[in-house]
Write a protein that binds this DNA or RNA. Sequence first.
DNA 1: GTGAAAGCGCTAACAT
DNA 2: ATGTTAGCGCTTTCAC
Lengths: 340, 340
Amino acid sequence: LVTRDDVARQAGTSTAVVSYVINNGPRPVAADTRARVLRAIADLGYQPNAAARALSRRRDDLIGLLVPNVDNPFFAMVATAVESASVDKGFTVVLGNTRNVDARRAEYVTTLLGRQASGLILVGAAHEADGSHGPRTSEMLADNAGVPLVSFDPLPDGAVGTTLMPQNVKGAALAVGHLVEHGHRRIGMLGGPPRFTAVRERDRGWREALTAADIAPGDLPVYRSRFDRYEAFDVMAQLLTTPLPFTALFVHTDEQAIGVIHACHAAGLSLPDDLAIVSFDGIREAALVTPRLTSVHQPIVEMARRAVDLIEQQVAHPPTSRTTERTPCTLVVRESCGCS
Amino acid sequence: LVTRDDVARQAGTSTAVVSYVINNGPRPVAADTRARVLRAIADLGYQPNAAARALSRRRDDLIGLLVPNVDNPFFAMVATAVESASVDKGFTVVLGNTRNVDARRAEYVTTLLGRQASGLILVGAAHEADGSHGPRTSEMLADNAGVPLVSFDPLPDGAVGTTLMPQNVKGAALAVGHLVEHGHRRIGMLGGPPRFTAVRERDRGWREALTAADIAPGDLPVYRSRFDRYEAFDVMAQLLTTPLPFTALFVHTDEQAIGVIHACHAAGLSLPDDLAIVSFDGIREAALVTPRLTSVHQPIVEMARRAVDLIEQQVAHPPTSRTTERTPCTLVVRESCGCS
DNA sequence: GTGAAAGCGCTAACAT
DNA sequence: ATGTTAGCGCTTTCAC
């Protein structure tokens, strides 16, 4: 295999210069020298050894992306966005399906720390009732394990890094408010598991919007399911065995809303006439189902790009505290709410 | 950070012994020595440096998974299966969305070769008319680049490794045969892009099953769309503007079939009465949509496990030729075909 | 069964 | 502006 020594020899320079050229630093290289090196690299088909580089720099251009499950289209969307942003910045991404299991997440954190990953992006973090990432994971990440950390949920206790979350309360209120404008009063909710912080926030948005409209949330039904469409389907199918005690439903995720829609179809309901639906996330499929889903859109592509940026920044300037950034969401009106 | 030297010191042994313990070889270690080392590792919370290990071994326990796009639920399923099988065997997986673009695929191959990846798993390979992985990718992988290679499509020209494909012809014939048994004669096809080998094979299965039933395929309509549900939706929506020249449709992938179903719903068609559908792949969602999809199931979990096994074997015994394995598929009968 | 030491290929501090 | 070289942490061949 061709190494940096071969390149140096071929270019008639020292090995250091080759490094300087490849890394654009840390020191300048004369234009013609640089050209010779570049030629040698091309001629020889030289490809740097990432392991050697990582060993020497004590850091690998690698980002660990920990999601519950890429099988869920929402997380697939996140994964795609993160991968894309990472590639643009020269990072390679390791995919980890944590299945929301603390042990699996902790195992991945261990692996990635051992790999000198440049950073970790944690998505769908909740495992414990407190909304943390689970005891083992938290322990590993706490007290500055030294890895740049970006979480789409609250950070593990004691860990430093940044949290990147949508404005869940406002977003949910936007959704529910729209339903109110349609004249609905009995607006039920199908939420996710309350151990997720995002879920509790969306809960609150629902409550606040109702209260603002002089509707008592306490009188309205609340249901729960996991984030996937399958369990949402089951929950809704069950509800459909008796008359629905609501005329509209705020659903925490598009994924769940799609399950609801399928259940309604299977039961012969006509949407949005028999039931209006507004959900949250903004996955592509929202625009495909019938009726097309009105949904609060979170700008995942931008958030993913931001996450990678933050990792890059944290590499340069290790953070010493916990930061939170809230991304605004927008209501995308389609048909499931009752509009046109 | 704690290194192997620390462990050796703590355990009162040499660094070599620590390696022997960690790697279970290549040489035996006395039971009590091993125990001391293990204790030291635990006490110190030692985590091996993957970069150093990779540099020394010239190989990293890393598998590159190149799919067109994890956004597509089928590929998400494959990714999940590969990730799961990889973790079980101690591999970490790098996710690469190639978007079916040769340049992107080639870039990933470069990166992964530079990372001393233990192997590559290529999914959704076709880019060129000949069904190869694209010129740049092929060039990189040809003539034994040295990486263990498993492809879910034909290998690039000149590359050695193994191809793992479902029995597409038989599977498709199974699907179409079932439609014939339902009494259908006008069985159209919505296929994928014909530059994919799998597509051409499914085409053939359709033709053969029709011919076997004394139906002339040439008289039947064939449509094409990309593999995603969105374009399939568009194609079907277009077809629905005029009377359908078929009573049943063999669709190349569940993903596309779901697009078809959505289009039919949007147009008010009643399935499977107005149109019977059978598709291919066996994604989870097939069982969720209305009507539930009858589909030819390929055992992705097993195939993924096999792929990782093959990588492992090729690491030990570099292959010198191209091998192909065909996995049998089974027809999973649900409702979209007209059954109950 | 165990220890010592020579790399693996690259980075960056130290020379010039 | 460029050359020289000491590591980075681990594997594995030699010695013992």
